[in-house]
Amino acid sequence: MESILAKHIGTLPQIDESAFPLSIRFEEGTPVEEFIAWYRTNKAWLDDSLLKSGAILVQGVAIDNVDKFQHVTQSLGTKFRDYLDGSYPRRNLKGHVYISTEYDAGYNITMHNELSYSAKWPSQLIFGCITPPGSGGETPLVDSRTVYKIMPPEILEEFERKQLRYIRNLHAGQGMGPSWKDTFGTDDKSVVEQHCTDIDIKYEWRDNDNLRLINIRPATRVHPVTGEKVWFNQADQYHPTHFPEEVYETLMLMADGVEEDLPLFVSFGDGTKIPEATIHEIIQTIDTAVVVRPWCKGDFVIVENMLVAHGRKAYTGDRQIVVSMVE
């Protein structure tokens, strides 16, 4: 990566380049337009800093509703993508702004890079805090370059050699998890089939108009700009160990005891099972490098999706964390 030559211009907020995520703190209540003007002046420096740090936290800007968040994100990205082909429900709030997740508040979501099971993923995620949770509900972050370096060598070698085989079983309207109609935003099978063909997803129509999707993907990637290797997969999210025990037992009853018929499943690319102990070791390894910080109203975080993975902690109370995805 080229050295950072751009300089800060204009009145500086408090900046901590040694922190992860890189921290930029404006005076509390700074108007949105003032931040946008500062961003446009310092865009070159910020772009370089994002590649270096992987994530940038901005605090103090007066973002207290979805409209203001959308206005800010429009200044940060030029082209946004929808959540087509996502694993979990994610409700669209306005334009390119989505609720970050509607997964059960009582459970954690493990670390992952958004849509890393796909052949097409967002380059950046912008998370914003409209309403902080009563307790918990943080969005933990971890540097995927660090994860690659600290992953046990025997796990890294096997995952790189075998790749991963992700399976999603989507119902037609009745069942556990999302339907294929919600996942793809259509009830037209031909549209779904064309999307799958375009991004190399194997598909199979099953009984009762249910749909099985199979993605075979690498477990690691090389960043196209920095040339750095990153741990880039969602093996732990798709593995049966991800489900809480009571949920797993219910789903297995519905799937007649066949794990590949669960809403989500993962194996190695050759079809062999990934041992539960391996998944636990992966999660434990990643957790040693995770950074967790509480949300404050108005905070937003820009995440370089290949360089940094994110998750979500269980929470209580109201929580409105929103997200926009940059292509």
Rank of each mutant, 00 (worst) to 15 (best):
Y148I: 01
G177D: 00
G177V: 00
I167S: 02
P122L: 11
Y166G: 07
G175W: 02
P178H: 10
R165E: 09
L164H: 04
R165A: 08
Y166K: 07
K181T: 13
L141D: 09
K162H: 11
Y148P: 05
P122W: 07
W121R: 13
Y148F: 11
P153G: 00
E138A: 14
L170P: 00
E160I: 00
I130E: 04
R145M: 06
G128V: 14
I150Q: 13
L156I: 02
Y166T: 06
E154I: 10
R161H: 04
P153N: 03
I150F: 10
L141W: 05
N169M: 08
V142G: 08
F159M: 13
A172D: 15
G136S: 03
I130T: 03
R161G: 01
M151Y: 02
G134I: 08
P122I: 02
R165K: 15
G137F: 05
Q174H: 15
E157P: 15
L141Y: 06
E154M: 11
S179Y: 04
Q174Y: 14
E138G: 09
G177C: 00
L164Y: 06
L164N: 08
S123F: 12
R168D: 01
E154W: 08
R145Y: 04
I155Y: 08
S179R: 06
D143S: 13
K181V: 07
L141K: 01
L164V: 12
G173T: 14
M151F: 06
I155T: 13
L156F: 03
E154S: 14
P178I: 12
T139G: 11
P122R: 00
S135L: 14
F159D: 05
L170S: 06
F127W: 13
L156D: 04
P132W: 07
W121N: 09
K149E: 13
W180K: 01
Q174C: 14
G128A: 15
K162T: 10
K149Q: 15
L156W: 03
L164I: 09
K149F: 07
L164A: 10
V142E: 05
I150S: 14
G136W: 09
G175Q: 04
P153K: 05
H171V: 02
G173R: 15
Q174A: 15
P132I: 06
I155L: 15
S135P: 10
K120S: 11
E157C: 14
S135A: 10
V147C: 03
E158W: 05
Q124H: 13
L164D: 05
M176G: 03
N169H: 08
C129G: 03
H171Y: 02
L164E: 09
I167T: 05
P133A: 15
R165W: 00
L156M: 11
R161K: 13
L164G: 10
Q124Y: 09
I126F: 11
W180L: 03
P178T: 10
S179F: 04
W180M: 07
K162L: 14
I126T: 13
K149G: 13
L125D: 05
W180P: 01
P132M: 04
M176V: 07
